[in-house]
Nucleic acid binder design. Structure first.
Lengths: 154, 154
DNA sequence: TTAAACAGGACTAAAATAGTCCTTATTTTT
DNA sequence: AAAAATAAGGACTATTTTAGTCCTGTTTAA
């Protein structure tokens, strides 16, 4: 399904919330109630985002979290990497080492390219893009995008 | 990590092997020893590929599997979908229903768009591409897929 | 000094994934 | 007709990953 983990998904929701009120400091508790995600979970994610330098934290009473950069400087690729590590569709996209495959699979180089392409796509979307309303022709767009997925079933 | 499952990875190896000797019928056993993947696992994957209409099977002695189409007609998106179901980075990319998020997350529409872009990228790579030596810079598919999502908004 | 907040890490529970195996159906060979 | 080779379908188990919670310590404002 090529799925992001739930935590990564939450992270985008949390970051979107923070971006929509950028500059302000938000306590974990506040974020939890605003997003409806349980506090311990929010807390865990926020820590990871701080470690990845996407957020800055302030300790103590009146402390909390703020974005480390403006929303247009935070890419989706960065968010995903913060939670899941390097973007890599296959094991061999990560390391240069040969995988265990008997014959030497010969498609490794191509995986690397494919992976790079996906990465570029995710790099080109920023948090600023994500909090923007869906572009105008709402209905038309919905139709367009649903067709290809459905066509996989024919 | 945005990872494909191991089985999907195996599937690409199996299909690559079959594509490199396209037209011939291959028994599961043969594929297992050629690829170094254990027979029961190979067998499981082959069945899924038949169900997804990527392979055709022949029963009985001298039976086996062949590609249902030529390698240039089999996209990576199709292979992934065969093993993992529809390509969807997030839960809400799949269904039209609102997710449980309290406030209504407001980024759902954008997820659809991102998802579509990834899907297009994977659709543009075929099995034929994958068994070719690493493409030169002018390869058509590479260029096509480098569409910046952000540009869709501007 | 106390309360509010984050930091770090350990732990548990649940879910997904990978892998194996058994039984049945079909086809070719002897 | 029997035997051998092969796929189909599904059940089952083990392992790994993921999600989620909680505890203890540290920092800071009031």
């Amino acid at each position: 399904m090529l799925r992001l983990s739930k935590l990564t998904d939450y992270a985008t929701v949390i970051l979107s919330f923070m971006a929509s009120d950028s500059g302000t400091i938000h306590a974990a508790m506040e974020i939890a109630s605003a997003t409806g995600i349980a506090l311990p979970t929010v807390s865990k994610i926020l820590k990871q985002l701080v470690n990845a330098n996407l957020l800055m934290s302030t300790r103590g009473a009146k402390g909390g979290y703020t974005l480390a950069r403006t929303p247009d400087k935070i890419s989706l690729a960065t968010m995903i990497t913060a939670l899941e590590g390097p973007i890599a569709l296959t094991e061999c996209s990560i390391s240069q080492q040969a995988c265990g495959q008997a014959t030497g699979c010969g498609i490794r180089g191509n995986w690397h390219l494919i992976n790079q392409t996906i990465h570029n796509a995710l790099e080109s979307v920023t948090l600023a893009d994500m909090i923007r309303p869906i572009p105008a022709k709402d209905a038309a767009w919905k139709q367009e995008t649903l067709i290809p997925i459905a066509s996989l079933y024919r």
